[in-house]
Design a protein around this nucleic acid. Structure first.
Lengths: 237, 237
DNA sequence: GAGGATGATTGATGTGTGTCAATGCCTCTG
DNA sequence: CAGAGGCATTGACACACATCAATCATCCTC
């Protein structure tokens, strides 16, 4: 069950929280939320536990403190699309309308800070800086969304897999030599990339045989960053 | 060439503009922009003309007044993904960061109102109502984006085509009996749905043979709304 | 009204990825 | 340490959609 406790603005001292801002959250750092700290509640979720349900009234939004969370859209016949993987520092749920149009589930055991959406709205009315941050945040999410549409609509399976590895390497900040620790299962990756689990496996194996990466379960080393960029159709810069 | 002229806040009287708010823009009506009218410029674009270029500095944002505009992301080898089709009342470009990460092109001859992004930002700082509208606008765009990820990642060709027809029927407000007038080519539809033009054609023909729709070039009648909903995996309500 | 350009449609064929199924590897439990 | 369960990997095969190619419809031009 989802466990929560009031944090009384002292959440910065709670275990697992200190690294949140330092981690450089992919979707933007919600520093301005410090003003809302008094309304924040720390929530813990076990692995595979649902944090918000698709269609649920959107009362709260969340910041991931530790662990990994996925957003999921489900079709009635069970087909699944993972919208995004959220890592420490990432925020979600504030961009809802009346209700959440996706569910959020813990990929690993996770800690989150939960804020009332209404409080955020009211604060944004008074704090231009926060409002701007929220706009920048949604701009980044929209940009990421367009990138993913290109991936889902036009890239081949191997291109998707290479792009995914590059994205995760960037987000987890895994440098030369240090591996990417993938918190999610192959099934999650497949549902994120619009592929099947078998195709993801084969794609990874293929990259390994080429010498581009090394695989050890959930740990992946990038051996040839350049080749991976080419395989993922990385734009020139 | 892109033609523009200062509107001095009287643009509401310009031909083609009157219908903009009445049309119920899909992405939300930017009524609050009336406050920015003095900074607005009317821009005209010929069919197939580029309005903003991918990678261009994001100085302006736009509201479509008449015609149809598409946003496009291009890969180096020519693969193309259409992000969205913009109809009268729809706004785009305000959710950029430093530069636009997509290009916008006129599908048909189009008229747009162009606003300086900086002016919009400044106004949003003072006007909570506008800021809220912008947040709601991006929430809707993000929601639409998640819906499209599901479509691109998990739906079959025929499901995508049925979903597309339903979306266009909704947005153009074509009721029973009156046809959908599709402003875009089959190629555009294909690039929007992550398919090839041939697959789009075949899918449409198939729906016609089933008696679900009737086709006459760019005009499409929905004969069996229910069957189309099933074909497009429309969620129950 | 002939000729050409452009876009839509249809057909034949190929292939990338999905589906089905077997096996392997690791972890947990008693 | 045996057995079970969960996930990852690999193989064989099928099929949905892409590709290649031909034809058709419409519009434009001279």
């Amino acid at each position: 069950m989802l466990c929560s406790m009031a944090s009384n603005g002292q959440s910065a001292k709670l275990p697992g929280f200190r690294g949140a801002d330092a981690s450089g959250g992919w979707m933007g750092k919600p520093r301005a939320l410090e003003l809302l700290a008094s309304q924040a509640v720390i929530v813990r979720a076990d692995r595979e536990e649902e944090i918000v349900g698709q269609g649920e009234a959107a009362e709260y939004c969340y910041v991931v403190v530790s662990g990994c969370v996925r957003t999921v859209r489900l079709m009635e016949d069970g087909r699944r699309q993972v919208g995004e993987f959220l890592l420490p520092g990432d925020m979600f749920g504030w961009e809802a309308l009346e209700e959440h149009d996706f569910s959020a589930e813990a990929v690993t055991a996770a800690t989150l800070r939960r804020y009332p959406r209404r409080g955020l709205e009211l604060l944004a009315d008074r704090d231009h800086e926060l409002a701007r941050r929220l706009r920048a945040l949604s701009a980044r999410k929209l940009r990421a969304g367009r990138e993913r549409m290109l991936l889902l609509g036009r890239k081949s399976a191997s291109e998707r897999i290479a792009s995914f590895l590059l994205e995760m390497a960037e987000r987890t900040g895994s440098g030369e030599g240090s591996p990417i620790e993938l918190p999610m299962s192959r099934t999650d990756i497949a549902d994120y990339l619009g592929l099947t689990i078998e195709t993801v496996c084969r794609g990874l194996t293929h990259l390994q045989r080429q010498g581009t990466i090394s695989i050890e379960r959930a740990r992946i080393w990038i051996r040839d960053r350049r080749a991976l960029g080419v395989a993922g159709c990385e734009a020139l810069h």
